[in-house]
Design a protein around this nucleic acid. Structure first.
Lengths: 220, 220
DNA sequence: AGCTCATAATGACCAATGGTCAATTAGGAA
DNA sequence: TTCCTAATTGACCATTGGTCATTATGAGCT
C-alpha cells in the first residue's frame, strides 16, 4: 500500500470504517434494509465482504452503525440558535420542524436511514436501537423537556417521562410523515406548500395544547 | 382424502387457507417476520411450501393476510358497550386502553402481529399495509372522530384529518408500549400496576388536552 | 534494503431460505 | 371405471448472510 505521509494504520482503519458506514447509509437509504446486500455495500466501499463482517459482526450491526451515524448528523433540540431558544420550548419545536423540511431537500439519506431504523421489524435490532436512543438520547429530548419545565412552559401535573415520550413519539411520526407520504398518505398535503405549512402549524398547536402549561399565555 | 359429508371443495380450500393464516399468525408472533420460514409455517399447517406460495404469492403476501386477520380480531372504536359510548369520546378511548391490557393477557398473538406490521421495514409490505389501513379503516377511527366532533367533544379549529392521524399515532404507540416494553422501556412501569394505570390515565388526559373541545367541561 | 511476523483483508465456501415448476395426486363428472 | 381438470407436492434453483483458511500488508528490527 503506497502512503505518501506516514499515516498511522489505525487512522486508515478508522477511515475505512467510516467509508463503509457512509456507503451503507447510502444504500440502506436507497433500497431499504432487505433491499441491499452486505456484498454490494462492501464492493461499493472498495473492501471485501469479510471486512464488513469483521468490522461490524453482522448486517444488523452494520445497520446499527449507519443508524447511529445518521442520528449524529442531526442536531439536539437545544442546539437551535439562541434567538430561537430564548423564545421558548415551542419556538424550538417549530424551528426544527421547519428545518426538517429544508434539510430533507439537501440530503434525505440520514432521514431515510433513521426512518428505516424506527420501523424495523427485526426484534434484535429493534432492541439495540431502542437502547441506544434511551441511553445516548441523541436528540437531547430529556434535557429539552427539563428546559421547558424550568421555563414554566410545560405542565408539571404529569410525569416528565410521559412528556418526553409524547414529544419523542410525535416528533418522530411528524418527521416521518414529512419524509415519506407512504406512511400517512396525504396528511401533509403532498406538493401543496400552503396546506403543508398549515398542517405543521396545527401540529405544534396540538402539542402545545397537550403538554403546554395552560396558565402561561397559550391562548386557545 | 376421506370426507364423511360431501363437503364442497371450495369450502375445504377456504378452511385450508384459514388454517395457514392462523399458523402464520402464531409463528410470526412468536419469532418475528424474519425469524420464521415459509416452510415451517407450511409444515405446521400440514401443507407443502408450494401451497403457501400458491395461496399467498410470497412471504410478504402471507404476512399481509396474517396482519389483516389480526386487525379483524380487534373491535372498532364504536363497538364499545353502549354505556361506554354514551359517556363520550374519551370514555371510549379509556375503555379500549383498559381492554387492551386485559385482552393481551388472554391472547397476545394478534397484538404482536399488528405490532410487527406497524414496524416492518420492507417498503413494499409497508405500502400495502398503509393502503389497507387507510382504505379499510379496520378500527373505524374516521367514524369515531366524526362521532366525537358531532358530540362537540373535539375541537373543530383543526382539520379532522389531523385529529384522525393524532388518534391513530398515539393509540398505536400507546398500545405498542403496553404490548412490549422493548419499544419504550419502562414508560408504563413494567410490573407496577399502580404506575401503569397512572400513566395510562395521564395519557388519556394528554390526548384530551390536545384534541378535546376545551369549552366543554374538560377541566384542567 | 531485506527479513520477520502479527494483524488485517480476502473471497471461496457453506447453510438457510424465498421462490419456481414439472410431475403427481385428488376428486368430481360421465 | 375412466377421464380430465385443477390442486398439491417437493426437488430444485438463486440469492445472501455469515465463516474461515489462506494471503497480503506494513511496522519494526537488523
Amino acid at each position: 500500500m503506497t502512503v505518501g505521509q506516514p499515516v498511522r494504520a489505525v487512522a486508515r482503519q478508522l477511515a475505512k470504517r467510516e467509508r463503509i458506514v457512509a456507503v451503507a447509509m447510502e444504500q440502506f437509504a436507497a433500497s431499504g434494509y432487505e433491499g441491499c446486500t452486505a456484498e454490494s455495500i462492501a464492493a461499493a466501499a472498495g473492501v471485501s465482504k469479510g471486512a464488513v463482517f469483521g468490522y461490524f459482526g453482522s448486517k444488523a450491526g452494520l445497520f446499527l452503525a449507519a443508524y447511529q451515524q445518521a442520528t449524529s448528523t442531526f442536531s439536539k433540540y437545544l442546539d437551535a440558535p439562541a434567538e430561537v431558544t430564548e423564545r421558548g420550548f415551542f419556538a424550538v419545536i417549530s424551528h426544527w420542524l421547519a428545518q426538517t423540511q429544508h434539510l430533507i431537500g439537501q440530503d434525505w439519506v440520514p432521514y431515510r436511514v433513521t426512518l428505516l431504523g424506527n420501523y424495523c421489524s427485526d426484534l434484535q435490532l429493534r432492541r439495540a436501537i431502542t437502547q441506544f436512543l434511551w441511553r445516548d438520547d441523541p436528540y437531547g429530548t430529556q434535557a429539552f423537556v427539563r428546559f421547558g419545565i424550568e421555563r414554566g412552559e410545560l405542565r408539571t401535573d404529569i410525569d416528565a417521562a410521559v412528556i418526553v415520550s409524547m414529544v419523542d413519539w410525535l416528533m418522530d411520526r411528524c418527521q416521518d410523515a414529512i419524509v415519506t407520504e407512504e406512511l400517512d398518505p396525504g396528511l401533509f398535503g403532498g406538493a401543496d406548500q400552503q396546506l403543508r405549512e398549515l398542517r405543521l402549524g396545527q401540529f405544534v398547536e396540538l402539542l402545545r395544547s397537550a403538554i403546554g402549561n395552560w396558565a402561561i399565555g397559550t391562548a386557545r
